[in-house]
Amino acid sequence: MSLIEADSERLLAAVTSLLAQKGIASDDELVERQRVTDAASPGQGARMVARAWLDPEYRALMLADGAKAAEAIGIPMRGMPPLGVLENDAETHHLVVCTLCSCYPRAVLGYPPLWFKSAAYRARAVRDPRGILVEFGTTLPDSIRLRVVDSTADYRWMVLPMRPAGTEGWNEAQLTAIVREGDMIGVTLPQA
């Protein structure tokens, strides 16, 4: 019988038992990792963005080392790839894609949206990035420099968008609530 024909429950049991026997990962560690994976969502990244909008020191930490900044607000990063943070400003916009597969900062954004993994997005984000942004409702002025970050190797990347006008005086919870998944991939901009 080939692996493809094997009963998936038995296959999983065989793999987890081998992981334990070889001292790679215990059952408890697997359960803990599953809990962390299921808890990850764009809400985690949104908390980082909101904090960075309010706290210049946190912003500096986030730009220097995204993983440290995530851990600083209680997001588990053990065993995760390094997290790079791309800062948008008045002259620069970032768009993240993984043309080779679907590398994504899952620890802080959760599971990637289906379109992020589509061949169409992956091909067009590098060839016609401004065109694809328009389809997401984002028209970049000509004066903005667009940097398309192709996530090809060991880093995972998230965008730190600009704080939108009309949010003056808002608290962290209010700001967190307006930051969406797409804002941190770079296909959309946060709206007040």
Partner: peptide
Amino acid sequence: QPSVWGQGHTGDALVVEL
């Protein structure tokens, strides 16, 4: 970016881990 694809907006860039 425009030099790689023969289309695009002047000044736009692709940034890649190599």
